[in-house]
Design a protein around this nucleic acid. Sequence first.
DNA 1: GCCGTGTTTGACTTTTACGTCAAAGTCAAC
DNA 2: GTTGACTTTGACGTAAAAGTCAAACACGGC
Lengths: 128, 128
Amino acid sequence: MNKYYSITELTREFGISTRTLRFYEDEGLIHPERRGRTRLFRPADRHLIKEILRGRRIGFTIAEIREIIQVYKDPPGEMGQLQLLIKRVEEKREDLRQKRKDIEDTLSELDNVEEACLTRLAEIGVGT
Amino acid sequence: MNKYYSITELTREFGISTRTLRFYEDEGLIHPERRGRTRLFRPADRHLIKEILRGRRIGFTIAEIREIIQVYKDPPGEMGQLQLLIKRVEEKREDLRQKRKDIEDTLSELDNVEEACLTRLAEIGVGT
DNA sequence: GCCGTGTTTGACTTTTACGTCAAAGTCAAC
DNA sequence: GTTGACTTTGACGTAAAAGTCAAACACGGC
């Protein structure tokens, strides 16, 4: 047990390049082990990469992702820091709620587009 | 009636720069009128800008936004084009559904973070 | 008549998130 | 013992989406 993943295993699984993983390491997002110079990824690394990619999909920057990881790794103990964090979390949530609404609006718009397409297709199909 | 908006009016309303609007015009997303060299934005332009910004928020590229605008302005009449469009719409929808899920997952994670913060704050508050 | 504010074009710069390529090391397999 | 698959670092390149800056035009108010 205690499996290791190679870098290409993960790039294949997630559809990313080795450059991307190297970049994430350079940026301090992940810290795979090494055997010699070769990177060895543990399940925890793999899981973290998954979360990084999720963050990426919803538009977080590398800096934001790093910050989130930081909070998990080493939550602030001081009161001012905590209050600041709460404020920033609240802002992010507002942001995400807006984005969710944007997505829902766009989804219904796409519904309409598709319907219009299908109607038009039916017309053409009948006409010919 | 038939109001015109100045460029700064719109940049202020939407929190963007004039450069951004000029950029969108260069990219063919908007086509404000002119009085001499000065751009005059009509309500329809303003509305379109709103939609462009919504597209931007959910991660559409300029090219994608342009394509969407194009479809609205001049929907395809040919069958193959229509079928292609339907396929692309379906892909986009899948993409957006994934994004929505990502957002929802992240929102609940943020709930947890905030709760942890509040708990921690309460502990500190009681302890001192 | 000039001041402040707004606007224009054009050119150059910046940031983010990687892509691409070169040169070299590792290691199992044949 | 060399081929082939994989990996490393380092350096340079790139695409998207603006930011920044300069020089000049527009115009209402005082």
